[in-house]
């Protein structure tokens, strides 16, 4: 079986499990929608203000929603012994881990990207800004999954892991937040989003190479 076959088998397996456990999948999506809808209620419905805070609010909400699902990225596989089998497989653990991260993004990240334009409409964003928002989330949410995987692996089976994972990953999420929300802001203020988006893409490239490796090392330590 070649590397791609293994990768797609892992992704298919995780998607299948997620689809049969729908409630967990929908939790982060609902969270995103509700948090984003609560802000106008707390701040007021003045359109100028909403348009101004939209990029930040939507990005922070997406970031928190993505973090909400981090705990179960490895916890179930750890509890039922699958993670042990992965670590003992002759297939490199990094490949299996990459598959799991990809599946996590498809389940927890991609739905946020797809629903974001609807939420953007609530904030009266222009079609152009909506497009930039979608692109920034498309580049940014995989980054959140990749960085989050490191935190999830480090806190695997640790006391109070749920709170700890946010303490570990939130500081590391800051660049993604700055460039992601910044892209939309720059587009609204007419500065052009290209710079922010290319930096976001650069970070994503870096994380694609670095994060699975760090996650693998952390998982091996957790299994000892």
């Amino acid at each position: 079986m070649n590397a791609f076959g293994v990768l797609s088998a892992v992704v298919r397996r995780d998607l299948l499990v997620a689809l049969r456990r729908k409630s967990e999948v929908l939790t982060s999506l609902f969270f995103f929608v509700i948090v984003a809808s609560l802000f106008p209620l707390g701040i007021g419905s003045e359109m100028d203000l909403l348009r101004k805070i939209a990029p930040g609010v939507l990005w922070v909400a997406a970031l928190l929603a993505a973090m909400l699902s981090l705990n179960r990225l490895f916890a179930n596989d750890h509890a039922d012994g699958t993670l042990e089998q992965m670590a003992l497989s002759p297939v490199p653990l990094g490949l299996l881990v990459s598959g799991k991260i990809l599946a996590h993004w498809l389940v927890a990240g991609l739905p946020l990207v797809l629903i974001a334009p609807l939420l953007g409409l609530q904030y009266d964003l222009s079609p152009r800004a909506l497009l930039v928002l979608v692109i920034s989330l498309l580049l940014g949410t995989p980054l959140l999954s990749l960085i989050g995987a490191i935190g999830a692996a480090l806190t695997l089976g640790v006391r109070g892991g749920g709170v700890l994972v946010s303490l570990l990953t939130l500081p590391l999420y800051i660049p993604a937040l700055i460039f992601g929300a910044g892209a939309v802001e720059a587009d609204i203020s007419g500065l052009g989003a290209a710079g922010h988006l290319s930096l976001l893409a650069a970070l994503l490239t870096l994380a694609v190479f670095f994060a699975p490796w760090a996650t693998t090392a952390a998982l091996k330590i957790a299994l000892e």
Partner: peptide, 24 residues
């Protein structure tokens, strides 16, 4: 070991964070 991985990930991120905050 877990702390070491976190510290190393942090060290890689510190310049990125600093740069992004400066950009911001």
């Amino acid at each position: 070991k877990a702390g070491a991985i976190l510290a190393l990930v942090g060290v890689v991120n510190v310049p990125i964070i600093y740069f992004s905050v400066k950009w911001w």
